[in-house]
Design a protein around this nucleic acid. Sequence first.
DNA 1: AGCTTTAGATAAAGCGGTTAAGTTCGGGCC
DNA 2: GGCCCGAACTTAACCGCTTTATCTAAAGCT
Lengths: 340, 340
Amino acid sequence: MARPTIADIAERAGVSKGAVSFALNGRPGVSEETRRRILAVADEMNWRPHRAARSLGNARAGAVGLILSRPARTLGLEPFFGQIVSGLQAGLAEDGTALQLLVVEDPEAEMAAYRNWTAERRVDGFVLLDPLIDDPRFAALEALEVPVMVLGGPLEDTSLSFTWADDSEAMHEAVDYLAALGHRHVVHVAGMPQFLHTKRRTDVLTEAKERHELAEVVSIPTDYSDSEGAVITRRVLSRRDRPTAIVYDSDVMAVAGLGVALEMGVRVPQDLSILSFDDSLLARLTHPSLTALTRDTQGWAAEAARGLLRLIADPTLAVRHQSSTPVLVPRESTAPPAGH
Amino acid sequence: MARPTIADIAERAGVSKGAVSFALNGRPGVSEETRRRILAVADEMNWRPHRAARSLGNARAGAVGLILSRPARTLGLEPFFGQIVSGLQAGLAEDGTALQLLVVEDPEAEMAAYRNWTAERRVDGFVLLDPLIDDPRFAALEALEVPVMVLGGPLEDTSLSFTWADDSEAMHEAVDYLAALGHRHVVHVAGMPQFLHTKRRTDVLTEAKERHELAEVVSIPTDYSDSEGAVITRRVLSRRDRPTAIVYDSDVMAVAGLGVALEMGVRVPQDLSILSFDDSLLARLTHPSLTALTRDTQGWAAEAARGLLRLIADPTLAVRHQSSTPVLVPRESTAPPAGH
DNA sequence: AGCTTTAGATAAAGCGGTTAAGTTCGGGCC
DNA sequence: GGCCCGAACTTAACCGCTTTATCTAAAGCT
């Protein structure tokens, strides 16, 4: 038999379509006895609601969107994305809400997708990754009046909700640690300069220079690719007064940097300490293993997902959630600099 | 103004809803002039079709499902998944079809999700990963009469479509290469034994033993985790007559194995050659870099996505597509065994 | 008994599209 | 001129479910 509809159930149970709808949705309007009978029939006929039909009446699509504007290949390279996706998954699953994923090539396409998906009522809300400084997406999404949860922050001048981790604090911890070990020349291989968290981390470093009376602290922006990580590392290690420690903004770059150090005969950690922002299998599997700032990325994403669901249920809400601060996990790649 | 509907457009353009529908879908029934006028009005009002409403009429949901039953954390660990997801993305995007992702903990939940999503008409089809030997999902999905594209194969005794890469051939190439280098003791750290491709690779090895008169060829099944990869490697390298080459079924395990070798003072490639099935950043970034069987995973997934779209358009089809065979990329981790 | 109240159910109107089945109308043909 | 035909539209039904208004009958109250 074809897919049963509530009309079929109604007929079989000898009631009206309306009664079936009430019964199946647990709302008043039918007696306990009738409800049980209807539920039994529905179960017997193996009925499932038709999502589209449901979405037509009320406005819920039962899905939220995640749109990434990155070259598609980085998805496979950065463990970060996988963790985010599975974390969101976990948070959404509790509600039966699905995750719709889209990878686009440029910011224009990303914006177009927000507009289209909202207009088509394809999703009930969005998750936004990597907030930028003066992010143009914020205003656009506010105008669309669609629930949005930003992974990152804290955000000002916007009504969008967000959950953030204090990576300023984490970066503090990292720099303090390196300074305590005796490092005075530190290079920061940063991420994209337009990213909010890049700026926050870089700011901490600048400020740390004064505080710890470091001889040198430089932040060098990159596109997060392993190749740029390698190039920068090679350049920095070729200098006469090369740094004794490098902080990388991603594990992929840190591993690439480690490779360059080995290739150049620079011993890690004796001649060079390496510290990675972002932990993953990658950081653990290298030799020496990488000291890293680690955090529960999946848990963070799951929390964001739950926040978004609350937001969808009540759009007047404004969720401002702070998740746990990344923690420094010392491994083999950091040590006091030579002669200390 | 609220979301415009075709009724609004009809009113504004002074025609009926039906005419608007014809015009917007490019079907006959309206004159060129009227069509242009209607399109202009629709554009002006910034109209977008309401997905749910459309799905109600015809049966297309405009999305396909990918359901993974793996512990959620592996998503973040295996670069493979990211590549598959972004590849599918690319293939689907051409059509505006979305990808709905679900990560579940066990096969029962996976089966339930297939049933629910089909019954709810949430998706138009599914992509299936990692076919098993005598896979119970095949029969269930055939019964659901829903378009399915399996990534892997070749499949027999099923009407499901699939695209496969000949990893038997690839494994041949790998073994021939190792044999040519002079290796006689080869260990294969395999994946899950119930996976079809694990069996195919293992079979090739068994057969290769005769052909190349190898002294030893063992396949050891694992769960693909880095920890099992490390444990097995440690055990194998501790033996008196340890192998001179190890083939790993995933890059994650290969990197873990490399770590163990270094930790045990076994020099790679002088004392031990390492070859990884599956290439990725991981394999390239290690030192020494890993010789690997590489393939265009994203392209493969994109091709599968396109096949699935064809299948959805015409469910009587049976797509049997073979994608390019993985290619051996020699890097630093393989060399003739000592004393050769 | 006569009235209101209310629980329990029904009927019907959407939601935003698609589509089969009319309806008009101008033009070609005999 | 009458007839037929196809093009260009319109009408209205329908997809499956939700929801509001409406109805019915039994219970409650004075």
